[in-house]
Design a protein around this nucleic acid. Structure first.
Lengths: 335, 335
DNA sequence: GTGAAAGCGCTAACAT
DNA sequence: ATGTTAGCGCTTTCAC
């Protein structure tokens, strides 16, 4: 490996001058700069960033802990974060938790002495219980995509999930629906359900716990199974609110298999606006969440904290979702 | 920050002994080990891995350059790689190229002096032209998911794409189809098309270039557009072979919008077996690729090379795909 | 503007 | 089994 000393010797200067040239400092005379650059080129010198990191204490690397990437929802977030990091010359150290709190804790401790410049955490499901650990990490930390009550001691960039649920509910209320069923991943998506409840309360409909069906893991399969339960009820609902598009996809499939037309016989509304939602059959009415914006804001929060050498202020930033009307929702059938 | 020296002083030993304890070496007497461990606990000492890396020359970090994670196909690969790395105590530094060769090159150079222990590259689209750079990286490198001709100087773990195309073609031939159209992302998926061609050649059908429609980017949208062209042809094909499931999804949607039933009026077969394929409407017949296996093999290849301190032998490993019969393919309609 | 010295926190090789 | 001595390759501080 060719080191700074090698370059220095070749150029007839000291290590220090080479260092100045490499880092683009302006204190070097054009003459020596040229000599040094020639030496660098001839020797094919590449600075050892590890040594630089040890000396400076910064690694130009940000850790990102995320539940999964095999989910269109989070993969967008990962890509946006990576984009922001790349723009500012940072690297991305990625760790996934896969619904496993223990795995999450392992990642956390193994990253903690890895000399990251900052850490971003998406999703409260697996790391929600480890917030105290996060707070004592001694480096800038931010959270995003936080469904449950956000911790007050850390900065959080997330979506107003209560509003997301409310918008889904209000949309169906406005269409005239009064007999809803909710299919959701409880308790994870409790806040979304509260929003739905508020919307129906505004038109005098009580959305009781008996009208909430569980779809564990928020998978299409879970949605499919729950949809069958919904059909078995004595009085068929006129619409289904799901806590995620993935669930909605499974629900729609179940209805189709049982000869129910969506939206003529029953409306289905999702939350998330995953890419498939637009291509679903029928295209899914859903509540779009500003994922890219969220990811970008969170990443920039951290990078700015690094740049300014200041701790990140523990603010809560709530981004607004928006209803996206497609073809899976319509007024209830007359009966 | 509390260092080894602090611990050493507190325990009344030298740095070296602390180091031995930390790394679990057995040369330490139970007595001193206990003293040192007490000191570590009292001070809350955490080893600085950066310093260790500088001294040892290993970082326990593997780089992974991947086209995108916002694709069910690659996200599975990323997760499997991460799983293997975590099993063996390694970290994952992730970089995405997003169909941008220039971005790929930037990532490559920026990772090259980042002191990774190894580098894995998935997908030839963006990095195919930078193989010479990869070869001169001076660290274990492996390629996976290589559609085009694999370079001979590097180890490659990929799928037999020719066979994948062949299996798709043979399946349709066996059903009795003799009037096929291919919708593919050319030239990227040229090899898959060759396999399809071989299958039809076996039953005496020539699959000419005029029967190959282009779906740039392999998106559902591109598939949709190409499908419309296919319908405009004077003689309607009885089946469509697509080079990816994503394309197939768009194709199926186009047919549905134009009143064609799949598979009664026309069969559609994909390649990839993405998660949505099973939930598509109708469930998509496709060729499954052993993505997890591929990812695992490639990652283990690298980790073993690191462990054995040997260069990775430049072998080519071709994994076999398999046809997955679902409901989008059937014998051609009688006419 | 350039050079000399002193570290960053750890591991490696050898001595005891 | 433990201590001693040198680095790893860079940046930082302070002379000149």
């Amino acid at each position: 490996m060719v080191t700074m000393d090698d370059v220095a010797r070749r150029a007839g200067v000291t290590k220090q001058t080479v260092s100045n040239v490499v880092r683009g400092r302006t204190v070097v005379s054009p003459d020596t700069r040229a000599k040094v650059e020639a030496a660098i080129a001839e020797l094919g010198y590449q600075p050892n960033l590890l040594a630089r990191s040890l000396a400076t204490g910064t690694t130009m690397t940000v850790g990102f802990i995320v539940p999964t990437v095999a989910n269109p929802f989070y993969s967008v977030v990962v890509e946006e974060v990576e984009t922001v990091l790349e723009e500012r010359g940072y690297h991305l150290l990625l760790a996934t938790t896969r619904g496993d709190g223990e795995r999450a804790r392992r990642h956390l401790t193994s990253l903690s002495n890895r000399s990251l410049d900052a850490l971003l955490v998406a999703g409260d499901r697996d790391l929600g219980e480890h917030v105290p650990l996060l707070e004592r990490l001694g480096l800038p930390v931010a959270l995003c995509m936080w469904d449950s009550e956000p911790p007050s001691a850390l900065p959080v960039v997330t979506v107003d999930f209560e509003k997301a649920g409310y918008l889904a509910g209000r949309h169906l209320c406005q269409l005239g629906h009064r007999r809803p069923v909710v299919i959701a991943d409880v308790p994870a998506h409790r806040v979304r359900i509260e929003g739905m409840r508020r919307a129906f309360a505004e038109v005098g409909v009580t959305l009781g716990d008996e009208a909430v069906l569980s779809a564990p893991g928020a998978t299409p399969e879970a949605g499919y199974a729950a949809a069958l339960l919904a059909l078995a009820a004595p009085e068929r609902p006129t619409c289904v609110l799901t806590s995620t598009d993935a669930i909605a996809l499974g629900v729609t499939e179940a209805f189709r298999h049982h000869g129910l037309r969506v939206p003529e016989d029953i409306s289905v509304v999702g939350i998330d606006d995953i890419p498939q939602a637009a291509h679903a059959h029928p295209p899914l009415t859903t509540v779009g969440l500003p994922m890219r914006r969220m990811a970008r804001d969170a990443a920039e929060l951290l990078l700015n904290a690094i740049r300014d050498k200041q701790p990140v202020p523990p603010d809560l930033s709530l981004l607004s979702p928006a209803i996206i009307r497609r073809e899976s929702s319509a007024p209830p059938a007359q009966n």
